[in-house]
Design a protein around this nucleic acid. Structure first.
Length: 813
RNA sequence: GCGGAUGUGGUGGAAUUGGUAGACACGCCAGACUUAGGAUCUGGUGCCUAACGGUGUGGAGGUUCGAGUCCUCUCAUCCGCACCA
């Protein structure tokens, strides 16, 4: 009978469903593996990137299940978010209806791929039950002071009508819709991720070698820790008076306290309160004030692209060590969001300060020796630095910090580039932030017993404004504290909040889902995720947030896990015609069509064979044919099998071809452990199986065939589960899926060994050598075989590499 | 500019500690069979050469009996961050 994937696949998918074959055991005594592919957003249809992601995860889950591990391999839906609302605006569908019907469709698509997911642990993050527990976490974070509300300048995406976190701004544009981001002052909720910056940074060391180094570096840079000195510049009396006594001093931060004697001016961000005060109170020339306002309205990216620009503010500060008067400027290169929005400028030893000073003719004073030209940003001996002259930079940094601390003028400080995580979104399709604004009590969290604060279903989604804000009744409520009339918060949580703890939700036994968000015992058993698989695009966003949440939830007592994802594999993109598959480019390959034509096994085989998982995968239709051909051939060779169990084979009596076939089969078996547990180079394992099948085909021993198929089906089941299970069931009653198969070393023992003979570093000929031959015998044989090339030559060195080659180094005699 | 990665046939990609470069597959060429198929099977296929042989892992050096692999320099491509004081 020929290979009919549709029948075989439907049959086994049904059987797996009936057997509940992929549910983990509730027992916590067995060794476990938690294999997790990043959960999908229910956009409507699966794409090839999903197929790749889940094919990799499924291969690992199935492999470990076969090695007798208790395997958790769950799937769910990252279901809140903008596209649901866009669908509502465009097609008039309710986000909830759109989302859940997409989930139903995509769940079915996943089924046809034969993925071994747990069915009982599936959930969508928009389920009110999920929201309920999340809101509780958020309130607990508020009570711990980790969540706070503040009005500040935020990134605003006009097309998404919402605020974005710093991590969600890419090159000045919205990560989702690519619209330029604007700055806007508005209130919002923030999670104090900076409080965890040090731990997030330090624990990256634990992930070394287990996460791609690229991702670790990106996170390290994103956190951007730097150490230095923070100190205050005291305003001159005259300047204080000019500012109406509103300001006495302002703080600056420097990583180069050793250059402090080289300060020749100070610069404030255009948003700095002092700059604002001067602008707002007409203390600057109108023209200058206008220019400053223009800069302040520009996004950081726009500013970065422009030439340095600044204006003197007509005020001065006093140098804390020299007592000199220093002019204060405002400048477009000073960031409001870092280091207090103010800098000390040392043009001699900083490129930006130099550029600015040169443009505006400000003085430049060298205080570090070294380099021929200025600016010199390296280290060296201090000069013209008062009592610190002649000290080396490194020493001087410490000495100056110490001195400033003793004098009460400054403090050694750590600064981070990382900003606190803004989690409020002015959108409908998200988890409501469970707070109430009470005219008498202020900001009050909801009572736990009132959770979840669920979304109202009867909303009108027009794209204008926040539907929760516009809803006639939803936001009106009573204060949980005083009972008086109050107004509900209408902002919803960033969807990255949901994906920050889903790994714990899966681990929690579904029987407890109603009651608890995370079960401690379950979480401690299952976490960390042994292998996490997903796209590199989450290197910072999701992976940083999830690490942060893990630590916060640990400190709230929910579990004892420090890092959520033990090992991380970042899969490469799926390309066609050299570009990422996308609808707009029209270069997509539809997974459903592929499965319909070839079956899921071929789709999975091709995807794992075409490239190592970490690399980009270029789609190739005819290579898909090749994968299909291999499965057909494998299926066809079932007729060669003569026994129903692993046979005992007397290796000695076999002919050469059969011996070679066994070598190939066992080589594949040897390779499989390393591939499934370490390298994930499925392409090489599949190649090894192809070699084995080719070698089996060149011989006709029934036992060798039986053994070969017995082993190969075991190795291939994680990759092509339907056809492998079908064959294994018919041929071996699935006995070959029982556990690890032992490698028979005797197969690798050879009667003679092929040595390559190299003369003068070049391959010249080959010799067959008895395995027992001594080094002298091998050399004698090699010289005899290589006589032709040795004439007129003198052998100056003889090298024998056991089982490999002989190299004779020669020179003309 | 800073940081990270990658460069191997026509293509995707293989190559323990440095030890026969190009496994496996696609494509291509030739042939067989034929119920004429986008089927199956057999053989060939890095480049130059009629052949002997030479040459070959982005480029240039170096270490070594021996380098895709190690070292130095250099070029190209991709990705991330981007005035972080």
């Amino acid at each position: 009978m020929s290979y009919t994937p549709s029948e075989i696949e439907a049959k086994w998918q049904k059987q797996w469903e009936e057997e509940q074959a992929f549910e983990p055991s509730d027992s916590h005594t067995q060794p476990k593996k938690y294999i997790l592919s990043m959960f999908p957003f229910p956009s409507g249809r699966l794409h090839m990137g999903h197929v790749r992601n889940y094919a990799i995860g499924d291969a690992l889950a199935r492999y470990y299940r076969k090695q007798q591990f208790n395997v958790l391999h769950p799937i769910g839906w990252d279901a809140f978010g903008m596209p649901a609302e866009n669908a509502a605006i465009k097609h008039g569908r309710h986000p909830k209806e759109w989302t859940y019907s997409n989930i139903d469709y995509m769940r079915n698509e996943l089924n046809t791929l034969g993925l071994s997911f747990s069915k009982t642990r599936e959930f969508a993050t928009c389920d009110p039950l999920y929201t309920k527990h999340e809101q509780k976490f958020i309130i607990e974070m508020f009570e711990k002071g980790l969540l706070y509300r503040e009005s500040t300048t935020v990134n605003w995406c006009e097309s998404c009508h919402t605020v974005l976190a710093n991590e969600q701004v890419e090159e000045g544009c919205c990560w989702r819709c690519d619209n330029p981001v604007e700055l806007k002052e508005m209130p919002g909720y923030y999670l104090d991720i900076i409080r965890y910056a040090d731990e997030l940074l330090e624990d990256l060391a634990q992930l070394e070698g287990k996460w791609p180094s690229q991702v670790i570096t990106m996170q390290r840079n994103w956190i951007g820790k730097s150490q230095g000195l923070a100190f205050a510049f005291e305003l001159t009396e005259e300047s204080k008076a000019k500012l109406g006594g509103k300001f006495e001093r302002y703080e600056v931060f420097t990583t180069r306290p050793d250059t402090i004697y080289g300060v020749t001016y100070s610069a404030l961000a255009p948003e700095h309160p002092i700059t604002k005060h001067l602008v707002d109170h007409g203390l600057l020339e109108t023209e200058v004030a206008e220019k400053i306002k223009t800069i302040a309205n520009m996004s950081e990216v726009d500013r970065a692209k422009r030439e340095k620009e600044g204006y003197p503010l007509g005020i001065s500060v006093i140098h804390p060590l020299t007592g000199e008067e220093i002019p204060v400027w405002t400048a477009n290169f000073v960031l409001a969001s870092y280091g207090g929005g103010a800098v000390m400028a040392v043009p001699a030893h900083d490129e930006r300060d130099f550029e600015f000073a040169t443009k505006y003719g400000l003085p430049i004073k060298r205080v570090i020796e070294g380099g021929e030209e200025l600016p010199y940003t390296g280290s060296g001996t201090l000069v013209e630095s008062g009592r610190f002259s002649c000290v080396e930079s490194d020493e001087a940094k410490i000495a100056i910090i110490n001195y400033m601390e003793e004098e009460g003028k400054g403090k050694g400080t750590t600064n981070y580039k990382l900003r606190n995580w803004g989690v409020s979104r002015q959108r409908y399709w998200g988890a409501p932030i469970p707070f109430v604004h009470c005219p008498s009590c202020g900001l009050v969290p909801e009572k736990f017993e009132n959770l979840p604060i669920a979304l109202p279903d009867d909303v009108e989604i027009t794209g204008e404004g926040n539907p929760l804000e516009n809803h006639p009744t939803w936001k009106h409520c009573h204060c949980p504290k005083c009972g008086g009339e109050a107004v509900r918060e209408t902002d919803t949580l960033d969807t990255f909040v949901q994906s920050s703890w889903y790994q714990f939700r899966y681990a929690t036994n579904p029987k407890k889902w109603e009651e608890v968000g995370i079960d401690k015992e379950d979480a401690d058993y299952w976490l960390g995720v042994d292998q996490y698989i997903g796209g590199i695009e989450h290197a910072i966003l999701h992976l940083l947030y999830a690490r942060f949440f893990t630590k916060v939830l640990r400190d709230l007592g929910y579990h004892d896990v420090d890092e959520p994802f033990e090992r991380l594999l970042t899969q490469g993109m799926v390309l066609k015609d050299g570009a990422k598959m996308s609808k707009s480019k029209g270069n997509t390959v539809d997974p459903d069509a592929l499965v319909a034509k070839y079956g899921a096994d071929t789709a999975r085989l091709f995807i794992l064979f075409a490239a190592p998982p970490q690399k980009e995968l270029e789609w190739n239709d005819s290579a898909v044919d090749g994968a299909f051909r291999f499965i057909k051939k494998l299926y066809d060779r079932k007729s060669k099998v003569t026994g129903n169990t692993l046979p005992d084979i007397d290796h000695g009596i076999l002919n050469k071809e059969s011996k070679l076939a066994r070598v190939k089969v066992y080589e594949a078996l040897q390779k499989s452990t390393e591939v499934y547990e370490k390298s994930f180079a499925f392409n090489t394992l599949i190649a090894a199986c192809m070699e084995a099948l080719n070698a089996l085909d060149k011989q006709d021993d029934g036992d060798v065939w039986t053994e070969g198929m017995y082993i190969m089906l075991n190795l291939l089941e994680p990759i092509i589960p339907h056809v492998a299970t079908e064959l294994s069931e018919t041929l071996f009653a699935r006995a070959n899926f029982g556990g690890r198969i032992e490698v028979k070393e005797e197969v690798f023992v050879q009667e003679s060994i092929l040595y390559v003979v190299m003369i003068g570093g070049k391959k010249r000929t080959e010799i067959e050598v008895d395995p027992a031959a001594s080094q002298e015998e091998i050399l004698a044989l090699a010289k005899e075989a290589g006589e032709k090339w040795l004439q007129g030559m003198q052998v100056v060195k003889e090298i024998v590499v056991p089982n490999k080659l002989v190299n004779l180094a020669v020179k003309p005699s």
